[in-house]
Design a protein around this nucleic acid. Sequence first.
DNA 1: TGGGATAACATGGGATTATATGGGATACAA
DNA 2: TTGTATCCCATATAATCCCATGTTATCCCA
Lengths: 172, 172
Amino acid sequence: MNAAVLGTGVKGKIGMFLSTVTNSLDAKGRVSVPADFRATISETPSKSAFDGIVVWPSLDGAYLEGGGISLLEDFQNSLDEREHYDAERSALQYKIFAASRQLAFDGGGRVSLPKDLHEYAGLNGKVTFVGLGRRFEIWSPKALEDRQEGLLALARESRHLLKTVKPSGASS
Amino acid sequence: MNAAVLGTGVKGKIGMFLSTVTNSLDAKGRVSVPADFRATISETPSKSAFDGIVVWPSLDGAYLEGGGISLLEDFQNSLDEREHYDAERSALQYKIFAASRQLAFDGGGRVSLPKDLHEYAGLNGKVTFVGLGRRFEIWSPKALEDRQEGLLALARESRHLLKTVKPSGASS
DNA sequence: TGGGATAACATGGGATTATATGGGATACAA
DNA sequence: TTGTATCCCATATAATCCCATGTTATCCCA
């Protein structure tokens, strides 16, 4: 981990996903997206008219990652700098773009999580949204608890990375 | 092949092709284009009135590539920046423009895949659409499974390519 | 600052619509 | 004709819309 991880170089008005919220998953597979997250999505400009979230299975474990459609648009822009048949580009496109789902909000701000995603993340009645800035994660509350172990220690060791002023040479 | 040759310079509202969907190919050679993909196509502006998808054999394997008509318009714009008889330009024109088909939607959002394209992609009863952002791929489910080999590991190693913030020099 | 009024939010369930898919009828070309 | 492609309609399933409700948070005024 290096300083770039927390570096900011953001331009324009972009909301952030913050806080951790647990909501319930009903019998139809629906779950309310936290209101704060919905606000973040609607205030972040995007090229797409899509009103909802995008979710895909994490590459790292049994949980989901997600964000607004603008997050994927940023990924797209990054990948466009590579050649069309570049292996690394393809791998990311397959594992993120092809693996993701567009989940539209219903009138009450809920989305329905497809069954295969339930299963991937081991979801069962309750769902925890973890705000991580530009994106968020979706966990089974139990699995998230396990993951917390060890994070505190690492966060303490890494405190020196926190800066309240942008480094002058930051390119991000 | 150079990425710049096929680079896109899209402006305005555009949708993205996301997720992976398997539909069935009936006895008449018809297959439903996933509703999300149709929505993406209809929300992306184009100079053409054509309502359907454009498909051509991949240059890289036994599968098809496709997108909305606007994708081909973007390719055209990129190629226009080259000399008329430039070798790369000609090659791409032959292998993509000349090899591609315009497949119109029927009333139910299906297209008929020509038999030679079936055969090229080894399609047989089932057809998988793979959303990759600006374009999509069409695979035989079995062949797609094989293709996944090693992709997860490569995607994990390549994650550093994904940036959520545009480089400061980006013009977009 | 207390406390009632109002609004926002999360959630349940039934009604309605969209989607994928099959099959027949019709137009067209070789 | 004979095969091919297009259009139209039917249907089971799945997804979405819509309304109702309890709860929490926020506002407003005395």
